[in-house]
Structure formats: structure tokens, C-alpha cells
Amino acid sequence: MSAFFIEGRDFELFVDAVIGARRVVGPVAKRTKFVYAELESAEELRLDFDVTILPPKKVFFPPSQDLVRFSDGVVGGCIDPVETVLLGVHFYDVKGIDMTDFLFRERNEDWNYLAQREATTIVASSIQSISPRAFWSSVGAEVEPQGHDAFLTKVNGGYLFETRTPKGEALLGYGSFREATDAEVGAAALANAAAMKQCPERLDYPSEAIAEKVRDSFGDVAMWDELAKDCFSCGSCNTVCPTCYCFDVRDAWNLDQASGTRTRYWDACLTREFATVTMAGGGTENFREHHSARFRHRFMRKAAYLNEKLGGPACTGCGRCSQACTADIADPVRVITHIMEVSS
């Protein structure tokens, strides 16, 4: 596709024009952090964000989502997508969306996710500020971000707008874009390459070697116990992860006590009851009873189990888990580096 340029002063007008036409979700400030939220005006948009608390997957897979509604013996679905522009997604989060796209589509297509995904135009954006725990420059470097429709790079007092799909091109009509010069395209490439060099943490091993070593470490119970010693089983590392997609399903009645909903909620495999089943005999059994077994399961999922399907690790290097873990034991760079260095 092609590259366009928009001056800084015209960019806000462009965003406001898109807001006038569609639902627009982008990064905004929340206290000392950033979150994705529906924009009311371009002023709220903070493309200088470092990382958001939750990844943008919440646009398609919200923390709670009604799947089925029932009333008087009638049961119906509630897939109701809204045309949306998701504006300002860093490349590592595009990779995360690529993974959840695949996972919700494989084998059984889940249109509770896919319908909103297809109704969304994703505009990726260059990294202007860097999160202190990021390691996106090194993890899964063999996997290219795919599922975006355009890419914005802040450069030369404006933005380079590279369209990737017809959905991305369709946004051109909302702003004063002109064709970009070779110099602007070159400057944007330099800016994006420079950001990659400033990534603070690095995972210095190839994905395949990591997958093999992590899988082989499964039986090293003493090591996992030590790594997980301070784990609260609080599920924060799961809940903020762009590639976690587990959920629980619960029913509830509305106030009328006759109608109600079947709703899915994000779940977390680090929490204690996640793998607990009520056995046919009546008792319960927890297949990952000890917190270190759950801690290990997360690393198996991120570094080994899904690699074959996804073509790389189920990790984007966003560093959200490292930041969210109050005990600071969740950082994949530290845990995986430890396994690579010491595990036999």
C-alpha cells in the first residue's frame, strides 16, 4: 500500500473527524498510567503513551461479555459489533491481537470475539515513550505484526500514515493527507528503528531454544518452587497479558428474577481454583494445586506450548506482567534467562 503525510496541526482535525463518524478507541491518561478508552475528542488522545494497563484486546474480548441472554424460555445470542477505529496501537500489541485472532478462530470460530474484531480498523502507531520493563525488541523477533490497517509514525512535525489495507485507506478521506516524500518515509523508518534500540530489557536467546529448555525444565520442581515462592496467585500477570484468553462463564438473573444472562469473565490460570474440578465422586481435585505448578503453567503456555501454533512464543514483550506483579517475580526476561542459565 502507500505512505501519506499529515501535518501536526491537521492531525487533531483528522482524529476529530473520525470521531464524528465512528466510535474511536485510543490511549488516554488515567492518573499516572494510560488506558484505552473511547475518545470524545482528539485532545484526549495520548500517542506519547508508554504502555496501557490493559492491552487493546479488551475491545474485542472485554473483561466481561454477555454470550447468551434468556427470557421466558427464549434463549438468544447477543453478538452486536460496533464499527470502531482502534487508534494508537504499538507493534507489540498488534502482535498480541494477531495471536488472539488466531486463537479465537482456530478449530471453532468464536464470533463473540471475531465479529467485533472484523468491525474494527486498527491504526498502529510508533513508540514515542518506552515502558521501563519492555523487552519487545528481542522476544519473538521472528514474528512480524500483521493485523493492522495503517501505521502512524510521528516524524518531522507531523505523522507519516502508511496504509496497509483498504480499511486503512478508507480513513484518508477524513484528513488533509498528502503523499509522503521519500525523505519522510526514510525518517519514519529511522525513528522506528531508533525506538527498537532503546528497549530497556532483552531476552538474548532464540525462541526455539527457549521453548525447548523451558519445556525440559517442567520436572525441576525445586526451581519452580523457588521462582514462585513469593507468588500471591493473584492472577495480575494473566489479567494484563495481551495473549491470555482464558475465561470463566457464569449465569445470573436480572432484577426481574426471570430473565438473565450467561456471561464470560476473564479468568486467570494463576488463581487457585482455576484447574479445580468437581469429580464425579463428589470431591474436588485441583490439577494444579500448588502455586508453583500454576506459575510454571503460565511459562509453559507463554514460552513453549503455543509456539507451534503461533509461529513463536505467546509473548509480545510488552512488560505488563513485570509491572503488574507486586512481588516482582513475573518478569519473563528474568525467569526465562534464569532457566536458560541454570536449569540443567
Binding site: 447468551v68 445470542g77 468464536d110 464470533w111 465479529a115
Partner: peptide, 17 residues
């Protein structure tokens, strides 16, 4: 309460038995 928006099946929609 339409059950099959956009012609796609909802994996979670149960059938009455």
C-alpha cells in the same frame, strides 16, 4: 434477541432439549 448475527453461529448458544 437475534441469535445469529451476520450469519455466524454463536458457539455458546444452547439448543433446547
Amino acid at each position: 434477541m437475534s441469535c445469529e448475527h451476520h450469519g455466524h453461529d454463536n458457539l455458546f448458544l444452547p439448543r433446547e432439549a
